[in-house]
Design a protein around this nucleic acid. Structure first.
Length: 211
DNA sequence: GACCAGGCACATC
DNA sequence: GATGTGCATGGT
């Protein structure tokens, strides 16, 4: 059993199942994945709440909105102009290629789909991987700021590891199982939020050291 | 009032 | 390839 696995077992035993992603539908996951870029989830919830109240939480309805109107609705999520553009870019892709149909999209081979998502302006590696893992149940590990911070502090990746380098650690250490990838990432966000604040050089409170 | 949050694209060297 | 900057709201 390697350190990455042991850490997972420890987190899982201590904190229990997280049942992620915090959204009601796969489409909502995809919207949330864009909206949460460098933004607290609380603010994203407000933006998604606005869309839901206006009954606009569907690919065609959102696609029909002007960028300006969409920006206004998602305003609480911050960076609202650029995120409105990014959502429109994604919706263009999702509708023109898959008719806004999640099941059609999930038929595509993981590697091909990831490449296509990354070609959409505004979809980077974390957003693409979040969509694939949490909306489509593809076994892709999502690396985020918490993941890098925690694993570099525990000396399992180098300080300035790239996204792909960090992801590789999980790919080589874990079975490629979407349920485990899902749970692991959710657990990392949980302890990241609670224990691993950016301005502290070490996780002073973290009782869950993988060592 | 400063600092931060579940990134990404783009410019410049 | 590395490094810097703009994007913006809301919570602590």
């Amino acid at each position: 059993m390697n350190r990455v696995k042991r850490f997972y077992q420890k987190l899982r035993r201590s904190l229990g199942p997280q049942n992620w992603w915090p959204a009601r539908t796969p489409f909502e996951v995809m919207v949330g994945a864009v909206l949460t870029q460098n933004t607290s989830w609380k603010n994203v919830e407000k933006a998604i709440g606005n869309l839901r109240r206006k009954n606009l939480l569907g690919p065609l309805k959102m696609h029909a909105l002007s960028q300006r109107k969409l920006a206004e609705i998602i305003r609480p999520a911050g960076y609202y102009n650029i995120k409105a553009k990014r959502l429109k870019n994604f919706l263009d892709f999702f509708i023109s290629k898959y008719q806004g149909n999640i099941r059609k999209m999930s038929c595509v081979k993981t590697g091909d789909l990831r490449r296509d998502l990354l070609a959409v302006n505004g979809i980077g590696p974390e957003t693409a991987d979040s969509i694939m893992l949490y909306a489509l149940n593809k076994p892709v590990f999502v690396v985020d700021a918490y993941t890098k911070r925690i694993f570099s502090r525990h000396n399992m990746i180098k300080n300035n590891a790239t996204y792909d380098e960090a992801q590789e650690l999980f790919n080589k250490s874990l079975k490629k199982n979407f349920r485990i990838f899902n749970e692991y990432h959710a657990l990392l966000v949980k302890i990241g939020k609670e224990f691993c604040l950016k301005n502290k050089p070490k996780c002073s409170i973290c009782p869950l050291s993988p060592r």
